[in-house]
Amino acid sequence: MSRDTMHSGLGRRSLLKGMAGFAGLAALGLPARAQGAGRVVVGTWGGDYARLLNEHIEAALLTPEGWEVIQDQAGDPERRSKMLAERRLPRGTTDLQGLNGPNMYQVYELGITQEIDYDRIPNAANLMPSMRYEYGIGHIYSGMVCLYNPDMLEAPASYAASFDPALGNRLGFIDIQYQYTMIAAALAAGGSVTAIDAGKEMLLEARRAGARIYPTNEAFAQALSAEEIGAGIMWKARAVQWQDAGINIQSVAPSEGALSYVSGFVIPRNAPNVDGAYAYLNAMLEPSAQEGFARDMGYNPTVENAEVPAELNERIGFTAEEVAALNDPDYGFILENDVEMKEWWDREFKA
């Protein structure tokens, strides 16, 4: 799928429809910020991701260069809501925002972020072409793989095998992953990342056979740990974290080609310190920072000059053939059709 395809056929009306509930969320405040070019305010999730941003990028690379970095930690919807609320201000309150792939695309199409100028990022010379977007820049990536408990069943070779009704109640689905699950099922049924109707009957058959649904990633992990289920699909990076926590699971890249997951950064149109934003993006792509996230979080580097030990790469990474086969979701399609996808999932699949 070309990047141009992802930008076609979307009107502002459809974009706003895809942001149901977006504008009504309360904006989060920040302390008054000092004038000058030395401060960078970064919107991010909290938890391990925020900690590792500080450890591998901010404290290690930016603070020694005289930058003061402040993290504005909040959930993804709250931070996008703040960006929308601030869109008409001459100066916003953040210089960068960390978002996943679909939401990087969304805020750009809404006109509240700016195009990335890669000439201002020297380390972008080593960025994987697939992680270079006009609307944002990929920080880390993983792929949606087939998970299985080797004591409970044979290794599946594909998404189709992972959704086999013969698994009965040993198969689990994650409610909040409905978009990617529907797309994976479409690929399993011979469809595409936009021809999702092809996979609906496959999902319904698995559900009728007893497949379970869990509300969150964490609830799904608990079910795997308790051996209530033994199969499902999930990001490989998360699977590695669960393995490290002692859960008895293995992963397989599906023969259909794994769906890719990208987490990256965007620059608001009214960012107060654009120079600081670009300094942060350049530091983010330093091999040492990328290697730190691979080691500590299980996500793959987006630069080609990062050196990941072979043993670690075998656990978190993908072969050259598997990388070539990765399926990029069509973010425009997801945004345009999210309301309908969620309605089908709730009314037909979960019923």
Rank of each mutant, 00 (worst) to 15 (best):
R170A: 14
G230C: 09
Y133P: 01
A124C: 05
M234H: 10
S260A: 14
M144P: 02
P254S: 09
Q243K: 15
N126Q: 12
A306N: 09
A306K: 06
Q243R: 15
A34T: 14
E291N: 14
R79D: 03
Q222W: 03
S14A: 15
A26S: 13
G38C: 02
Y118P: 02
R132Y: 00
A60L: 01
G138A: 04
G210M: 03
G46S: 15
E348V: 12
M128V: 08
Q114H: 03
A32P: 05
S2L: 05
E78K: 13
P156H: 09
R295Y: 12
A60V: 12
Y141K: 08
M83Q: 11
T194H: 01
M1D: 11
P64C: 05
P77C: 10
G75Q: 05
G36R: 04
A306F: 02
N248K: 15
R208V: 04
C146E: 01
V41H: 09
I183Q: 04
G276E: 04
M297T: 11
A184R: 06
K350W: 06
A37V: 07
P287A: 03
V262L: 08
V262S: 02
E58N: 15
S255D: 12
L25W: 00
T216A: 02
M104E: 01
D328P: 07
I247F: 05
F220M: 15
A289L: 06
M152C: 05
D197Q: 02
F293P: 12
D244W: 12
A157E: 13
G38K: 14
V266Y: 02
N270Q: 10
V193W: 04
G136P: 08
Y278K: 08
Q73R: 14
S2H: 04
I137K: 05
Y133G: 00
E68G: 06
N327R: 15
M341L: 08
R269C: 12
T63P: 08
M182T: 09
Y105L: 09
Y105H: 14
E65I: 01
A325R: 15
P329M: 12
R295L: 14
R120S: 02
G143N: 05
G46L: 10
D4R: 10
P64W: 03
A271H: 00
G292E: 03
A209K: 02
W344Q: 01
A206R: 01
S158D: 00
A306R: 07
I140T: 13
A206M: 09
A283E: 05
F265T: 07
N270W: 09
A157T: 12
N273P: 13
E311C: 03
E68L: 10
N103H: 13
A283S: 10
D330L: 03
A125C: 05
G246L: 07
Q241N: 14
E109D: 00
L153P: 04
Q250A: 15
F349Q: 03
A239F: 11
A277K: 04
T5K: 13
S288W: 07
K82A: 10
S162Y: 08
L61M: 09
Y214K: 07
G143M: 05
A221N: 08
D328Q: 12
I249H: 04
A325L: 11
R295V: 10
A245W: 08
A209N: 02
S2V: 02
R39K: 14
P90F: 09
A23M: 12
L281F: 09
G24Y: 01
E256G: 06
G98D: 10
R51W: 06
R238F: 14
H7P: 00
R3W: 01
L167C: 07
I183N: 01
